[in-house]
Design a protein around this nucleic acid. Structure first.
Lengths: 192, 192
DNA sequence: GTCTATAGCGCGATAGAC
DNA sequence: GTCTATCGCGCTATAGAC
């Protein structure tokens, strides 16, 4: 296990804070204390808060896209793929993660307080994920594993909104258990 | 049209700001400028920010509950009732509302930065609305207007999460049009 | 109930020593 | 790359005149 460099530690801590408190609820002070360095040192790595946010959103989107694509590339059943996709969100509610939302779901709520490049990143994440969900649903429809009313794109939008909204709501009450039952219900809807 | 008193103006302006920017993205300065009085005068009506937030959440929850109950009390079809419920959220995206989220959806994202009584209010709003959605779905199931897999409670949670999440996402891209097509997809899912 | 004025704090950000 | 020190600003909140 090689030691994590400071820049990565900052990103890790900042992401955790934003997923729990929001970008407007997190400060350089919070980061510095969690990492164990001084505020000024955080500015060395990310001069402006917008620099930090952009780096975070890019890292998060890239990682997420890679994981999702690896799920899509397997030869597992459409249902298993969809379940594994949903599991990416569910992981944020596990006991060790302390009720986090999706980074882009959280920042999306604060969208009107962000500059344009950041807003575009969030927007791209949404479109990206809806497109990949559409592919999953379409594949399942073609194999006959899924059967549902309406177009795959429209259902993908509903599923994506359910996952993002469900995470935010499950943090308030119900937790991981409620979120899991929501995923089960989504699976029922997709299989008709 | 009798003139609105200052306290009500403050609540109206603050609610609008929070639905667009979040509770952490709004300040007493923003309110005072929008109302046309000084910051100190806002503190006269709501000494602490938590006082203002609590008053806002209570007013919002009460109004919302009243409207929903009036929808439930009509003798319209289950589908019409559900559509009118969804319309309450859709109204936030109309051209005159400038892309607002649900007040409780927005504040729910910032839940971890709030004190406990406020968090409980948000939580109660969620439970309240899921319960009423459950009633709508159950009624439709009994009349035969709705046909869906799973329990009404589980589907209600999915519908509620879709609406809350869908609002946040539609603000980022797609707008009212995308949200409307999401509602249509929800209706298809509910009718089987 | 509104105002001016200000306290007190935390924020993002920068300068400059080591 | 980290530190100390500090700047300037915006925030919540309060005191006291009108």
């Amino acid at each position: 296990m090689k030691p994590t460099d400071t820049k990565t530690q900052i990103l890790d801590v900042a992401q955790d804070l934003i997923q729990r408190l929001g970008a407007n609820g997190m400060s350089y002070k919070d980061i510095s204390e969690a990492v164990g360095i001084r505020k000024a040192s955080v500015h060395t790595h990310f001069p402006k808060k917008d620099d930090l946010l952009m780096a975070l959103l890019e890292r998060y989107s890239d990682r997420f896209r890679r994981v999702v694509d690896s799920i899509l590339a397997t030869d597992e059943s459409p249902e298993t793929k969809l379940r594994r996709y949903c599991g990416l969100y569910e992981a944020n509610l596990s006991s060790s993660s302390q009720d986090k939302a999706c980074l882009c779901g959280m920042v999306g709520a604060e969208l009107a307080t962000l500059n344009q490049p950041l807003a575009e990143q969030v927007c791209a994440f949404y479109q990206d994920n809806e497109a990949r969900l559409t592919m999953m649903l379409l594949e399942g429809q073609q194999t006959g594993d899924f059967r549902f009313a309406g177009e795959p794109e429209a259902l993908a939008a509903v599923v994506f909104a359910s996952l993002q909204g469900g995470l935010l709501i499950a943090r308030a009450y119900g937790g991981a258990q409620k979120f899991q039952s929501e995923i089960e219900q989504l699976m029922r809807l997709v299989k008709n």
